[in-house]
Nucleic acid binder design. Structure first.
Length: 706
DNA sequence: GTTAGGG
DNA sequence: CCCTAAC
């Protein structure tokens, strides 16, 4: 339908129905979370190589070693797109409806081969292969074993037999929406899903979308997805849509917004509302509705998976000691807080996985994203939290309260003043995307992805906007330009810009240049900048910052968790803005192949103190050597940094130590007395174990004998 | 999630 | 400490 509505007249005699009108899509993507890691970060291509032979089988799981940046990015964009769509649809109506052509005289005529066009996008491939949930797209995804899924899907395929669906602008509108909705899925367009999404979009998307869809004139549609899209675009709209509609990876989905409905401050965090199943943890900071919760939940879960995929990295270096202090947070993240809040301190599970989330990253910005905690965790007392960074970018935390006092003494120029900002969103340069109506949603996705990827791949620049003005002088201090800790920083913005040094080469990743042309595509999407998107104010710092005895002291049972300080920071998120962002960027490893497979951040080494050893020995003497969890609970319950695995390992080393000559021992000497106890305990328990092994059916036997 | 054990 | 395998 609608074909006739095409302003063919305006298109200078082009009547051939074969000629399609190119849609010019202006996608101003705002708030692209670029949780991709350093600018030099290259998505690891090599799957993690098992360190041990038995790891061979682990290959099955190693698919995750794939680059996720593109995906992340896309997800972000998608979320944003969706959000923007919501916001800008209105404007679309105007331009697209009343004056489609005038909207932008860029209606291009182009011979479009309506035939299938196999398209391969590397970037897209990346995406697809990272989509761990591509379950829905099994059709194209070859599963974990084949990380690189060439999306050979033709446009037709992508859209399935309903390609006609996007034949008119109306459908396009829908498509766009669908795209946005599906971006987070980053799945290879599986026909059913695609069309499905599309349908859903037109059928069920209420409000703006439908409206737009209806209004978009056939063919000539110019969507100017621009405007001040807050990350706050509420997903609620979507919430009402069909359950099958994919949830956009809205920022809020990701961010571990634990803010419960009542916590509109955005900083007032509930301590333990992070139940995976309840997904109460991922509600919008301000708008919390049942509608959204579900979706957010989904998003959250998705994120969860992403997290698990190791692809998301957080800036750990910043929070050195946060390893401990943030433990809960981390864990929550990684584990989706499974019962962490409710259950006793069961050992730190998944410690390794959790850790994987933390990669070295010098840049850490609170973007309201996935990694809220790290930064937000710092926002202890609400308000502006002052943070100090050492030259390494390590955070030397100091909360606003105290810092403020001291800081004021320091004077204006005091370097002690640190501004904490929350970058709720990054503005990505405008993207101009031309895509034929006949393009599939899948291709649109790829196009957008490529565009974004290209930008990012070319290297990024961060722009700072203060009150709309771009601050170009990098040498000025924050204070000089008016960014001071005391100010309301709502006027502060950040943009992500293509690296100027990069020649804006046209995106060529597409195999069909005619098909897709993208503006503002600096370079090949070979690399993605990992800009960590840390959580915003909603961060979950409620974590029990329990005075865990991580200070080489024996955990005392009285080490009760301190009441989580509910932060009352202004909703203006706070974000760590490393004084030297350029340096920070520079610090980002440029290595293509991070050493430890994925540059996994190893936990800080924390040698056991004698006291700890003693506690361990004592516990083992009591409980035996096979109940590490109990040992942990018994003696190290409050030592969050000691997992039962750690204890087990320590015991192992203790035994070893006890058996070697004192000269061979290293580190803090352990009293011989303890070592002796270790040996005896070890002997005793191993003996017990042997007994059990030798006499397994003891009970039955006993019974029989009796 | 735990436990055990190699790295 | 890390990583897996096997429960």
């Amino acid at each position: 339908m609608g074909r006739g509505a095409l302003p063919e007249g305006s298109v200078a005699g082009v009547k051939d129905p074969c000629e399609e009108v190119i849609l010019i899509l202006f996608l101003k993507i705002v708030d692209a979370r670029l949780d991709c890691g350093s600018s030099g970060y290259e998505a690891p291509v090599m799957p993690h190589v098992p360190r041990s032979a038995r790891g061979k089988r682990s290959i099955r799981k190693k698919v995750e070693g794939k680059p996720m940046c593109a995906f992340d990015l896309l997800a972000t964009v998608a979320g944003k797109l969706l959000s923007e769509r919501e916001n800008s649809l209105t404007s679309c109506d105007n331009t697209g409806t009343s004056d489609p052509a005038a909207a932008k005289g860029t209606i291009k005529q182009e011979q479009i081969d309506s035939n299938e066009r196999p398209i391969k996008f590397e970037a897209f491939d990346l995406l697809s292969c990272n989509d761990e949930h591509s379950k829905s797209s099994k059709a194209t995804s070859s599963g974990p074993t084949s990380p690189i899924v060439k999306s050979e899907i033709s446009d037709e395929d992508a859209i399935g037999g309903e390609s006609k669906f996007i034949e008119d602008g109306r459908k396009i509108g829908c498509s766009v929406a669908a795209v946005a909705e599906n971006f987070d899925n980053v799945r290879l367009s599986s026909s059913p899903m695609e069309s499905h999404g599309c349908k859903d979009g037109s059928k069920k998307l209420p409000q703006g979308q439908q409206q737009t869809a209806g209004n978009a004139t056939d063919g000539n549609a110019l969507y100017s997805l621009d405007g001040p899209v807050g990350l706050d675009a509420k997903p609620s709209v979507l919430g009402s849509s069909d359950s099958s509609v994919e949830v956009p990876l809205h920022r809020n989905n990701i961010s571990r917004n634990t803010s419960s409905p009542k916590q509109e401050d955005g900083m007032d965090l509930a301590a333990c509302n992070d139940d995976d199943e309840n997904s109460s943890g991922c509600t919008h900071p301000t708008v919390v509705t049942n509608k959204t919760s579900r979706m957010q939940h989904i998003g959250h879960r998705r994120i969860k998976k992403l997290l698990a995929s190791k692809s998301w990295r957080v800036a750990p270096t910043m929070l050195q000691d946060s390893e401990t202090s943030n433990y809960d947070v981390e864990q929550k993240h990684a584990l989706q807080g499974k019962r962490m809040c409710y259950t006793r301190q069961r050992a730190q599970r998944n410690s390794s996985k959790r850790r994987k989330l933390f990669d070295r990253c010098s840049v850490s910005v609170c973007g309201g994203g996935i990694y809220d905690e790290d930064v937000s965790n710092l926002c202890e007392n609400g308000g502006i939290k002052l943070e100090a960074y050492d030259s390494q970018g390590n955070l030397c935390e100091a909360n606003g309260a105290s810092s403020t006092t001291t800081g004021q003494k320091s004077g204006y120029e005091s370097p002690e003043y640190h501004v904490k900002l929350s970058i709720k969103s990054f503005k990505v340069p405008e993207l101009v995307i031309e895509i034929p109506e006949t393009a599939t949603v899948g291709s649109l996705k790829r196009t957008v992805l490529d565009a974004v990827t290209a930008i990012l791949g070319g290297g990024l620049c961060v722009g700072v906007l203060l009150q709309g003005k771009k601050i170009r002088d990098d040498n000025k201090t924050l204070h000089q330009v008016g960014i001071s800790h005391g100010d309301k920083l709502d006027n502060l913005g950040f943009t992500l810009e293509p690296n100027p040094r990069q020649s804006p080469a046209p995106l060529t990743s597409s195999e069909d240049p005619n098909f897709l042309s993208i503006g503002c595509a600096p370079g090949p999407p070979d690399r993605i900048s990992p800009i960590i998107d840390q959580g915003g104010p909603d961060a979950t710092q409620f974590l029990q910052m329990c005075p865990e005895s991580d200070h080489d002291s024996v955990p005392s049972p009285t080490d009760a968790a301190s009441s989580p300080e509910k932060t009352k920071a202004n909703s203006l998120a706070l974000v760590a803005v490393p004084p030297m962002d350029t340096e920070a960027l520079a610090m980002v490893p440029l290595r293509n192949k991070p050493k430890r497979s994925e540059a996994t951040q190893r936990r800080v080494r924390r040698p056991f103190s004698v006291a700890e050893v003693e506690a361990l020995v004592q516990a083992v003497e009591k409980l035996g050597t096979g109940r590490w969890r109990d040992v942990k609970l018994c003696a190290f319950e409050n030592a969050k940094h000691r997992t039962y695995v750690d204890l087990k390992d320590k015991w192992k080393t203790l035994v070893h130590t006890a058996r070697i000559s004192p000269q061979q021992r290293r580190g803090e000497p352990v009293p011989q007395e303890l070592l002796d106890r270790v040996l005896s305990a070890q002997a005793y328990w191993s003996q017990q174990q042997a007994k059990l092994l030798l006499k397994p059916p003891s009970s039955a036997e006993t019974r029989l004998l009796l």
